[in-house]
């Protein structure tokens, strides 16, 4: 008997999802400008082998990196974005959605999947920066809400991987309310005694930082990620001063007490496995245990 009952066949990392990730034979590092073989970069957890720059990768790349034998079931794939406001700026939101969906091969900025890490079940909700700057709209909020329901129902820990410019302007107040929606759901998860791990990656700003990304039982971040509430440009314009070196990086947040630790992408899976192990161990103080069943 297999571990998973697949809801849908063959939802594996498809090439279209890797738009941000290196293609072809050679990879030119955005930061150190050095050239490496794409194969080497991939084997190096999508990090530059020369300068350890963590390349921005998509939800399905994380799923493949983290889940046991790269197997997982994607959930809630039927939730699609909607243009409730009939929003138009230079382009209509409807059109923007269509073009983006076609270009990046995703329906919105978040994918949720269920699987195991070192045989312990976990639900991972990961954001895609390629989809309108990873912006949070109603779909992101709804997927998080449903993921949390499932975590509570099955007593499975939750990991959210944030990578977002903030709330999605084209959904205006609806996207603002997703901050409240995700927070009220997380309050339920906390009450149920289910651990929530938050991984902040480059970049995590705005309404996403100011809601679920900062609310983990464990807050962790990939190295040198931009993390903040206001964007650096806005702050610079407001205070009319240059920003200090390293401002709003993961290391800056760690130093100021807002992260539990910074984790290199190559260690991420092991670290999560350890967390799942430690949070899963029966405490002498409580009988509440998380699901230990690997069967889903």
């Amino acid at each position: 008997m297999g571990w998973f009952k697949r809801l849908k066949e063959g939802i594996q990392t498809s090439t279209v999802n890797k738009r941000e990730t290196p293609e072809g034979v050679w990879y030119n590092c955005k930061r150190c400008k050095e050239t490496s073989r794409v194969k080497t970069v991939k084997d190096n957890f999508y990090k530059c082998p020369k300068c350890n720059y963590h390349i921005r990768i998509g939800s399905h790349d994380y799923f493949s990196l983290l889940f046991d034998v790269e197997e997982y079931t994607e959930l809630f794939t039927d939730i699609m974005p909607k243009d409730a406001l009939n929003f138009t700026d230079l382009k209509s939101y409807k059109e923007r959605l269509e073009i983006t969906q076609k270009q990046v091969g995703l329906t919105d900025a978040m994918a949720v999947a269920e699987g195991t890490i070192e045989n312990r079940p976990i639900i991972i909700a990961a954001m895609d920066f390629a989809f309108i700057g990873g912006s949070m709209g109603s779909v992101v909020g709804e997927k998080i809400a449903r993921a949390i329901d499932r975590c509570i129902e099955k007593r499975i820990p939750l990991l959210i991987i944030s990578k977002s410019g903030g709330a999605r302007m084209m959904e205006a107040a609806f996207s603002l309310m997703q901050m409240a929606k995700t927070a009220v759901k997380l309050s339920q998860l906390a009450k149920a005694g289910i651990p929530y791990f938050s991984l902040l990656t480059d970049p995590t700003t705005g309404g996403v930082t100011a809601s679920y990304a900062m609310l983990g039982d464990i807050n962790m971040a990939e190295p040198e990620s931009l993390i903040g509430f206001a964007g650096p440009r806005v702050i610079k314009e407001t205070i009319k001063k240059d920003l200090p070196e390293g401002f709003q990086t993961s290391e800056f947040l760690l130093e100021h007490g807002f992260l539990d630790f910074v984790v290199d992408r190559k260690d991420l899976r092991d670290r999560l496995a350890d967390l799942l192990f430690l949070f899963n161990q029966k405490s002498i103080l409580t009988n509440k245990v998380l699901s230990t069943k690997t069967k889903l």
């Binding site: 901050m179 409240a180 927070a183 009220v184 997380l186 309050s187 906390a190 930082t209 100011a210 809601s211 679920y212 990304a213 900062m214 609310l215 903040g228 509430f229 206001a230 806005v234 702050i235 407001t238 205070i239 001063k241 920003l243 200090p244 401002f247 709003q248 100021h256 007490g257 807002f258």
Partner: peptide, 20 residues
């Protein structure tokens, strides 16, 4: 307030904490 000290002291965390 989008200020330097506001970021240092965790503007995002403060708002998120209030919500939950």
């Amino acid at each position: 307030f989008p200020g330097l000290e506001a970021e240092e002291r965790g503007q995002a965390e403060a708002i998120a904490r209030n919500l939950i």
